[in-house]
Nucleic acid binder design. Structure first.
Lengths: 134, 134
DNA sequence: TTAGATGCAAAAGATTTGCATTATG
DNA sequence: CATAATGCAAATCTTTTGCATCTAA
C-alpha cells in the first residue's frame, strides 16, 4: 500500500524523505485534521514540523493519494483514498465518522441533463446521528 | 422576503438592530465569503464590525435562514436559503457558481438502506468547468 | 555535489472573546 | 430602564512563506 504511494511520489519527481514517510505512516483511511496528524507524529517521537505536514499533505492531495474534506464545523480533514469512492456519515453528536459507498451516477446524470457544466469532481457528506447517539 | 426573516428573528427573541438589518441587506442567494460581505457593507457606508458580521451570520445559520458552505479551497461561504433546496456547480477556473436543483431522495434512500445512521442534513457540491471555461 | 526539502520563526488570515458602551424593546 | 448587542482590541487558531540549513539522489 504505502510502498505504492512511495513509488508514485518518486515517479512524480518527489524525494522520499523521512518526514514524508512519517506522515504517511500516521495517515489513515478515515479523516483526520492536521492537528490530529501532528499529535500522532509527536506520540511516535517523529519530529516533523507542522509546516512540513501541510506541505506534505498538499503534495499527496495533488497526487490524488489523499483526500481533503471539509466537515460542517470548520475543520479540514485529510484521509488516504482507497480505490472505492466513498462518502462520510458524520455524527453531529459524538463526531464519529462512518464510510458509505453510494452510486452517484444518477446524480451526475441529473446535472448533465440540466446544464452544460463539465463536472470534474464533487463532495458529498452526510450529517446526523449515529446508532449510538440517536 | 427580508420582512419575513426579521419576523423570524423577533420570534426567536433577537433584537432587530441596525447591524443585523444591514447584513441582511447585502446577503444574497449566491454564496459570499465574510470578506465579501464586509466589503459590500463598506461600499454601502454601513459601519458594521467584522465580529458583528460573524455573530449575525451565526444567528442566521442557527435560524436556518442562511446556509454555510465550504468550497474546496479554504473559504467559508454564506448565502440566503430559498425554499428550493439547491446545490452548487463551482467553476475551478473562474470561480463562477451556478445553482442546480437535484432530487436526492434516491441518494438518501441508498443511505437508509445501507445503515441505521439518521441523516439530518448533507452537503453536496460539484466542481468542474463552466461553459465559458471549458 | 546540488537542488529539493526541512525546520524555525514570522507573517498572514480567519474566527472568537472580553469588556466597556450603546441602543432596542 | 434592563439587558441584549455592538465595537474595539486582543487572543486564538489555521495556514502560508522566507530563508538558512540539511539531505536524498
Amino acid at each position: 500500500m504505502m510502498k505504492n504511494i512511495l513509488k508514485q511520489l518518486r515517479k512524480a519527481g518527489y524525494r522520499l524523505t523521512k518526514p514524508r514517510k512519517q506522515v504517511l505512516e500516521v495517515l489513515t483511511f478515515y479523516p483526520q485534521s492536521v492537528t490530529d496528524i501532528v499529535t500522532l507524529l509527536k506520540k511516535k517521537q517523529a519530529k516533523v514540523d507542522r509546516a512540513t505536514v501541510y506541505r506534505t499533505l498538499q503534495v499527496l492531495v495533488e497526487l490524488g493519494v489523499v483526500g481533503k474534506t471539509k466537515f460542517n464545523d470548520q475543520t479540514t480533514m485529510f484521509e488516504l483514498l482507497s480505490d472505492d469512492h466513498h462518502h462520510h456519515l458524520v455524527c453531529t453528536d459524538c463526531g464519529a465518522v462512518e464510510d458509505i459507498c453510494l452510486d452517484e451516477t444518477l446524480l451526475i446524470n441529473q446535472v448533465n441533463k440540466q446544464t452544460k457544466f463539465k463536472v470534474k469532481s464533487h463532495t458529498l457528506e452526510f450529517f446526523g446521528l449515529c446508532t449510538h447517539c440517536q
